[in-house]
Write a protein that binds this DNA or RNA. Structure first.
Lengths: 184, 184
DNA sequence: AACCTCATGTAACGCGTTACATGATTGG
DNA sequence: CCAATCATGTAACGCGTTACATGAGGTT
């Protein structure tokens, strides 16, 4: 499962399930989203499989923190995941299927409205990534071959991808606006 | 579920489950992938819910074809799906998480090898989409406000997105090659 | 004879989400 | 006092994949 790899990667520094959830949202929002409950079950499995070691640490609030750290086997597993080559997930882009089905809407105004909302949603996502860029990577990292450099690379790829998609949607919107009205 | 919408959209022309599976691969490879078994169960549910009507038609080979067509309720449901606004799926981009974790690999050569394989995989995907473009949409469609026009729009967005991602990966590869060796 | 395409499904399993359940601390 | 944050999990359900089962017709 790819969540295994994602969590092992996030565990460069030890952390609780709750921590990992936060890191996922703050460090890898462009790569993965996951619910807490799923993270907990996944961590339990990784622990049973010997990839993680857990230490209970008292916390100021609620149940004790279960702090996970990678075992050598866990690190090996992470390295294998990456070394085995890129894992392209299955495509799930419902919004593109919707664009293709836009002809089902009766009027050009409705079609334009859909594309407007799409550009807004993509812009918001992009804003989030740009915030992350400025927060964590202000100026390009001079240090290379480090974890931070590669995190920056991944973010850069995501940013360029998203910007291109947003641009393409804006162009689609312009096309629909200019051609649409004539055809009703 | 978004597969509901995808299948309803694909059913602009009536078809069997087997047909739909083929259409998914040939017409919407940039938006969705789905297994036959899942399509069959989904179609059954849509039928029970009154969105589809099914007619059994004898075929030259094997069991009779079950040809599905949208009922008015089905068409309404499709329209509602689109009119409700864009459905951005959850992000699942394991390869970006892998890029971010590239520091786990020991040598710059290994890191470069990963990015090479990634560019190859993305290129192949892009080739497939470009084939589709030339096969189905040679020259931009002069007809607008039609299903074909919107199918072309969706494909165009996917193409631009993918090209940008490929370019960004190639640039990442160049960076790793030029900076990597110095850092071992 | 072997294999591919057409054509249907079921069953088992795993991944993922939603909802539920609990409870301390901190800040307004 | 209320809400948010920190911190853990379980249970039920649905989505999705893989494997299994069947079988006709055409191609090599």
């Amino acid at each position: 499962m790819s969540l295994d790899g994602v969590l092992l990667a996030l565990l460069r520094e030890p952390g609780s399930g709750y921590d990992l959830h936060g890191r996922l949202e703050s460090q890898l929002p462009h790569a993965w989203t996951g619910e807490l409950s799923q993270i907990y079950t996944c961590l339990r499995r990784l622990e049973q499989e010997g990839a993680l070691q857990v230490a209970a640490v008292a916390s100021r609030s609620g149940p004790p923190r279960r702090v996970h750290r990678r075992t050598p086997a866990g690190t090996r597993r992470l390295r294998d995941w990456v070394a085995d080559g890129p894992e392209l997930g299955k495509l799930r882009e419902p919004h593109l299927a919707q664009v293709a089905a836009l002809g089902e809407l009766g009027t050009a105004a409705e079609r334009a409205a859909f594309l407007e909302r799409l550009t807004v949603a993509l812009s918001e996502r992009l804003d989030g990534l740009e915030d992350l860029e400025h927060r964590d990577f202000d100026g390009l990292p001079a240090d290379f071959a480090t974890p931070r450099f590669h995190a920056w690379l991944a973010l850069r790829i995501a940013l360029r991808t998203l910007r291109a998609q947003l641009l393409a949607c804006e162009e689609a919107l312009a096309l629909v606006r200019e051609r649409g009205p004539a055809a009703g």
